[in-house]
């Protein structure tokens, strides 16, 4: 949590300005935000901020930018309801409320020396993009890096230009698949889990990071377990409705844990019973 110096109340939003806004897909916008009092406190990949659209409400949104640029608070938002839609309509110079960053992110220290397998579905790529920035910036610290990304259609591929440019690198394997496509798409078609048995990684030395809709994560976890990964090597990011974001209100409770304070990223063995993977 950022505001631990006693000078700022984590429950009170700071004012921030939209610096840039770009479209990243149908109903998806990436906003770059500058907080007026931001001292470049930084964030960990996988953390989120609470963003307020004044007069409408406040919602949790992951940081999707480069952790090496802590002053650029980048958020990728899909307009699904009143608050997210209001946020995506804000233009440069307009004001938002900002609390955070909050939560426990991806296990970056643990990844060192391991192969890293990232499985992302749809907008789930947004909270994983900071991981990719970090892995690629410190490439020598990690083994093989594999990104398996699935989304609904070729038009909905998030960060498409960036994925295409990363794909040209020789030190990362990237596979993209879509659920359905017309004849002009020449890539993979099929759900993201179908990429897992085809990917090349050593299950004994791999840590997998999974983010996407919950059903997709359940299927991905099942496929990763089938591929030989132990539950202690599987991490996933959980979305739950949030209010306080600091472990006080209980809105985000998942069994015995709070998604805002103990997560949103959890090692799978802590959530196994909640997700009931065995039943699929």
């Amino acid at each position: 949590m950022a505001d631990t110096d006693g000078t700022t109340d984590p429950m009170v939003p700071r004012l921030a300005r939209i610096a840039r806004r770009r479209r990243d897909g149908p109903q998806v916008w990436t906003l770059e935000i500058e907080a007026e009092d931001s001292a470049g406190a930084g964030f960990a990949p996988g953390q989120f901020n609470m963003l307020t659209a004044f007069g409408v409400g406040e919602v949790p949104i992951s940081l999707s930018g480069d952790p090496a640029e802590p002053d650029r608070l980048v958020h990728t938002i899909r307009a699904v309801g009143p608050v997210s839609t209001a946020l995506t309509r804000l233009g440069p110079g307009e004001t938002v409320g900002l609390r955070g960053p909050f939560g426990v992110g991806w296990p970056m220290a643990e990844l060192a020396g391991h192969d890293v397998l990232i499985v992302a579905g749809g907008l789930g790529l947004a909270p994983l993009r900071p991981v990719l920035y970090r892995l690629l910036a410190e490439r020598a610290r990690y083994g093989k890096v594999v990104l398996l990304y699935g989304t609904r259609s070729p038009q909905e591929i998030l960060f498409r230009r960036q994925i295409e440019s990363w794909r040209r690198r020789l030190d990362i394997d990237i596979e993209v698949t879509v659920d359905h496509a017309l004849g002009d798409w020449h890539g993979h078609v099929g759900v993201v889990t179908t990429l897992i048995p085809r990917a090349s990684f050593d299950p004994a030395h791999t840590i997998a990071l999974v983010c996407g809709p919950e059903v997709m994560m359940r299927f991905a976890i099942a496929a990763l377990r089938d591929a030989g990964l132990p539950d202690t090597a599987l991490f996933l990011s959980m979305e739950r409705n949030m209010k306080c974001a600091v472990g006080l209100c209980g809105h985000c409770q998942i069994g015995p844990v709070f998604a805002c304070r103990d997560g949103p990223v959890f090692r799978f063995d802590r959530l196994r019973n909640v997700l009931a993977v065995k039943e699929i």
Partner: peptide, 10 residues
């Protein structure tokens, strides 16, 4: 996998 596609999880 077809079930997942039908669910249109995205």
């Amino acid at each position: 996998t077809t079930r997942l596609q039908i669910l249109d999880v995205y």
